[in-house]
């Protein structure tokens, strides 16, 4: 299926791959923010996941080990954030920014010996029957496991948040921390776990860049994907399925831009890479103009169980 010289099947298939890192990081950050914590360290956790995932995948030659270790590394780095902000009550914004700096520096340091090496290939899984459907099959059902995992993760998060007790408690803690505490919920513990979940998914997202999308290690290779993830959470009004929509819209913009260049329409790459932030600003303005306020009520507010 070719429209205006762009193969739609290839475009959408490439778009899903291109969006997956941002999608993974954003869905984790959405959970973190739903619990009332703002972790600006997504970029740092992604790049750490990227380098750790790459190192383990190269040394074992088994990509899945890379992803698992990336998740652990991302979660460990987020524990640092969690301890600082939840127990020592440090400022969340400053600590998150610091986490990004730490991640960028640390990954550059430990990734040095691995530059220029190729990572083992992450194999595609052709889903039986579904992948044989014309057009849709090659478009959606012949990807690697991580792409499927990211979509399943969105579905799971959406279900857990809206339909289960754990999700209800998570929302309650993010919405009104004092009230949740008064009812006897462990605000700090719940947030701690949410932060670790966000760290793990950001780690996997980072590893997907170094293992599947590029696939090699270069310093600073996440190139702002973590910031796009943060912007997406706001754009999505903290709703999981909208995170997916947003990720596919913006994560795929790079792909479209390449295609557009190929057929001779030159849109400056800077404008395209600006677009997620521009749209986020528009959404924020919309929120304050029309008063449709969906941000978690206790977002980024420190909590201490002294009362």
């Amino acid at each position: 299926m070719v429209i205006f010289g762009i193969d739609l099947v290839l475009l959408i298939s490439a778009l899903m791959i291109s969006a997956t890192p941002v999608l993974l990081a954003a869905i984790g950050e959405a959970v973190v923010e739903k619990s009332g914590v703002l972790n600006l360290g997504v970029e740092g956790m992604m790049i750490t996941g990227a380098v750790i995932g790459f190192i383990f995948a190269v040394n074992t030659q088994i990509p899945i080990y890379g992803f698992v270790c990336a998740a652990i590394a991302g979660a460990l780095l987020s524990v640092l954030f969690a301890v600082l902000t939840q127990y020592i009550m440090s400022n969340q914004v400053a600590t998150g920014l610091g986490l990004t700096m730490v991640g960028l520096g640390l990954s550059a340091l430990i990734g040095k010996p691995y530059e220029g090496i190729k990572s083992p290939t992450v194999s595609k899984i052709e889903i039986p029957i579904l992948s044989d459907i014309p057009i849709l099959g090659p478009m959606i059902f012949s990807h690697d496991a991580v792409v499927y995992f990211s979509v399943i993760l969105v579905a799971t998060v959406a279900f857990v948040i809206s339909k289960t007790r754990i999700g209800l408690v998570l929302r309650a803690v993010g919405e009104n921390q004092e009230a949740a505490h008064a009812l006897g919920y462990k605000v700090v513990r719940i947030r701690f776990l949410a932060i670790m979940f966000g760290g793990a998914t950001a780690g996997i997202g980072g590893a997907y860049i170094s293992l599947a999308r590029v696939p090699q290690w270069t310093e600073g290779m996440t190139a702002g994907a973590g910031w796009i993830a943060l912007a997406l959470v706001v754009f999505a009004s903290w709703k999981p399925w909208r995170v997916l929509l947003g990720a596919y819209l913006f994560g795929g913009i790079t792909v479209l831009q390449l295609n557009l260049q190929a057929i001779g329409v030159a849109i400056p790459v800077e404008i395209l890479s600006m677009s997620p932030y521009l749209v986020t600003i528009v959404v924020l303005v919309g929120i304050s103009l029309f008063g449709h306020h969906t941000a978690p009520g206790s977002l980024a507010r420190p909590f201490h169980a002294s009362q």
């Binding site: 007790r165 209800l168 408690v169 929302r171 309650a172 919405e175 009104n176 004092e178 009230a179 949740a180 008064a182 009812l183 919920y185 969906t294 978690p296 009520g297």
Partner: peptide, 14 residues
């Protein structure tokens, strides 16, 4: 000790 963004039933369940 209520949650503005949640509905009545959710608040009660909590």
């Amino acid at each position: 000790s209520l949650f503005d963004a949640l509905n009545v039933a959710e608040n009660i369940a909590l």
